[in-house]
Design a protein around this nucleic acid. Structure first.
Lengths: 232, 232
DNA sequence: AGCCATAGGCCTACAGTGTAGACAAAGTAA
DNA sequence: TTACTTTGTCTACACTGTAGGCCTATGGCT
């Protein structure tokens, strides 16, 4: 006799924290972070909105949970390749996860802003630990490995943010807008930007990431070479 | 006879868009983005909340304005140094601005997510144009300069985000938390992280940025060298 | 002088928000 | 039985963004 006509989609048994987070992520994916309200969440769960509070302390904690859920989708790789290849693989994996949940990226980037590294969920720290291992095995000092891993993460998140704001509108409309927008800029003040119109139009996120990695890894190679040379 | 006892602080003449944005930034700086509500803003301005809508289309547009205001604080430099030095200077300038308005950084990073590059306010595009110029004069092809500038920006924003989430709590409490948090991690799964406790404790944002720049610039140097060599 | 247009400011009202607190039903242990 | 914990529900409160209308002062024009 349950209303299968209702917009609610799950009505069996008690709700688990996992169910709540799944529904929340679903809402975020569909309509963005702002669209995630307790009431709408309750509607999706087919329960009273207040149920959520049994599994999350509040909206903020709920969003933290969503971020963690997204990060858990990160694939994990065995340490087999050359360290360049391993870092590249991790980078592309993170990029893929972010592209799969573009609306959740703000949570990843600024959400963990509230939790100091020490007490983040272990799942979140695993990739960091892996990167540290890769770098140390590659020959870096542990302390340097830490700094490098931070730069690496910074670069990755930065790239993803860049890429996300590049694919907001459909390309057709984008092309017109871009051309118009560029023409608005005075040529004498923005000569380079004005001439780069064609390159601005075909943004390829994967390629762009790859080129960034090229630069970064080349820099790391040299840093490693300098250190080794000073040891002889 | 105006109430100087009132919490309001400005009561003379008509409000300008600039006054609204200044007050908004003030609120954001003081209590974070969430604390910026139309009503509180009206209170600061000493006017009815609805006045704001005469100068901004809505809350979102208002926040965009705040972000733009913050970016306008970016110092601009003459093109005199070696390109390495120039890029370093820009990087540090952006970092300083972000540290001055930590609560506004989410707006910078995700806010412009809604405006495609073409029609962003010119003030926002000026640094990009400058970086393009620097790279092109350094010998890179325009198209490469574009890709590099994107990587550069990505790296910068990523670094700032990293740094901001490193200085949330005061260092004393942070130390205790970190030690406790680390001990919670199983040693066999997180050997490197566990051993890096001391290095995790003294995070120096400026130095970390400098090291990231070292890597990046070294990578760019090599890329430039390879290109030049292939020309001979 | 008279008049109108316009802009800036104010007020009300509405739908929607997060969440504290009390209460009901149902399972579980003693 | 009784007592207690969990899980879901309901109500209520303080707050949010903002649409629409109205009032008033200021300017320019005839």
């Amino acid at each position: 006799m349950e209303g299968s006509t209702k917009p609610a989609r799950e009505n069996a048994g008690p709700v688990s924290r996992r169910m709540v987070l799944d529904a929340a992520l679903e809402l975020v994916d569909a309509d963005g972070v702002d669209a995630l309200s307790m009431r709408r969440l309750g509607q999706v769960l087919g329960r009273d909105p207040m149920v959520v509070y049994r599994h999350a302390a509040g909206r903020k904690e709920l969003l933290d949970g969503v971020a963690e859920l997204v990060l858990d989708e990160l694939e994990t790789f065995p340490d087999d390749l050359h360290w360049h290849g391993q870092l590249r693989r991790i980078a592309h994996a993170l990029r893929r996860v972010c592209l799969r949940h573009p609306n959740a990226v703000p949570l990843l980037v600024t959400g963990s802003l509230s939790t100091p590294l020490g007490l983040r969920p272990p799942g979140t720290l695993r990739p960091l630990e892996q990167i540290l291992g890769i770098l140390i095995r590659a020959g870096f000092l542990p302390a340097d490995a830490l700094h490098i891993s931070r730069a690496f993460y910074g670069f990755l998140y930065g790239h993803v943010l860049n890429e996300l704001q590049e694919l907001i509108a459909d390309p057709e409309e984008n092309e017109a807008l871009l051309r118009l927008g560029l023409q608005r800029l005075p040529l004498r003040d923005f000569p380079h930007l004005r001439h780069l119109a064609p390159e601005l139009l075909d943004y390829d996120g994967e390629k762009q990431l790859e080129e960034g990695l090229d630069i970064l890894l080349a820099g790391l190679d040299q840093q490693l070479a300098v250190r080794d040379k000073s040891y002889t």
